[in-house]
């Protein structure tokens, strides 16, 4: 450091008078304390949730729970772990984000880089807002109605009479993608909008087409945004219950469907950590609240890990040298 500032004022120099609360009006003091208190209270609540879940979860969490299948019975109190729900959560998250990301990125590119006619672009944006605002239980019953249609029978189990079950990892994953899509779309759109116009102009000035500019300049630049949006979306999928309960078939174990290896799992039914917790909570039929706590703790860890990933990506995005430029703003 070239300039080292002395922390103490030079002797003999009058220290500048600092603003102190003693000069404040009473209303301001109370408001200040309330704001301060609100922040602290939120910290306390977060700590309480984490602490309680950790204590209860660790109390009941045995390593064997992580790699044993749930019991075949409805009642889970005697035997069985939650291997299948863990696999289910991971599988569903991957399916959902794999569907959501390309669609969301493509839509964001179209809205920001093309967006003509502008009325249509605005319609796309409000459409995505509507999807984002739709309660997951509504998405779930809509999904059920949709995927029970004969044309979409290949995605799930079709009974003898031709009735389509509509419940499978594929159908649940497809609806889950709608939960993640707005987050990926929003993050990508913001990333693209924060790229100054002169970056695009520089590319056109080098004789590049718009497509080349998008592929080689804009998309690489927004990769951290896309990753952030995807990680947030994955957190949402992993934490969702309604779609799982309605569209995943509510079998605690993975039940394969059809004979094609790989596809049989996707067409089959199963459970996730959220539906497992629901099932075994006092509200469900599993009758094993201690396992619900253990599973809830695992789920919490998973989601917290995803949130840390978001942070990590954001910080790595900042390391590309974008900080201090408008490109780095808002990260």
């Amino acid at each position: 450091m070239a300039v080292t500032a002395s922390p103490r004022p030079a002797p003999g120099k009058q220290r500048p008078k600092r603003e102190s609360m003693a000069d404040w009006r009473w209303g301001d003091r109370i408001a200040y304390v309330l704001c301060w208190g609100a922040g602290l209270a939120l910290c306390a609540i977060a700590a309480l949730i984490m602490g309680y879940m950790a204590v209860r979860g660790l109390q009941y969490l045995k390593p064997s729970l992580l790699w044993s299948h749930p019991s075949g019975e409805v009642d889970q109190s005697d035997s069985g772990g939650f291997l299948d729900p863990i696999i289910g959560t991971i599988l569903l998250t991957i399916i959902g984000i794999a569907i959501a990301t390309p669609i969301a990125v493509a839509a964001a590119i179209w809205v920001v880089e093309y967006g003509r006619p502008s009325g249509l672009a605005r319609m796309v944006e409000s459409g995505i807002e509507v999807v984002a605002g739709t309660p997951d239980i509504v998405l779930a019953i809509f999904g059920l109605a949709l995927f029970q249609h004969g044309l979409l029978g290949w995605m799930s189990f079709t009974a003898e009479g031709g009735a389509v079950f509509g419940r499978s990892f594929l159908t649940a994953g497809a609806m889950m993608s709608l939960i993640a899509l707005p987050m990926v779309f929003g993050a990508t759109r913001e990333g693209l909008q924060s790229i100054p116009a002169h970056v695009r102009e520089a590319s056109y000035g080098l004789g590049k087409t718009k497509i080349a500019t998008i592929r080689r300049v804009l998309l690489p630049a927004v990769r951290p945004n896309v990753s952030t949006g995807a990680a947030l979306g994955m957190g949402r999928i992993a934490g969702d219950t309604a779609i799982v309960v309605i569209l995943l078939g509510a079998t605690l174990r993975l039940e394969k469907e059809g004979g094609v290896p790989g596809l049989d799992v996707l067409k089959g039914t199963g459970s996730t950590l959220t539906s497992y917790v629901y099932n075994n909570s006092p509200a469900g039929e599993g009758n094993a609240p201690e396992k619900a706590y253990a599973a809830a703790f695992v789920l919490l860890l998973l989601v917290v890990a995803l949130n840390f990933t978001v942070d990590l990506i954001a910080r790595r995005g900042a390391k590309t040298g974008l900080e201090g430029t408008r490109l780095g703003a808002g990260r």
Partner: peptide, 18 residues
């Protein structure tokens, strides 16, 4: 695109790609 490769441009604000 060919024209812009033959007649190149440097802008007022330095604008390297990220």
């Amino acid at each position: 695109t060919a024209l812009r490769r033959r007649v190149a441009m440097v802008f007022q604000q330095p604008n390297p790609f990220p």
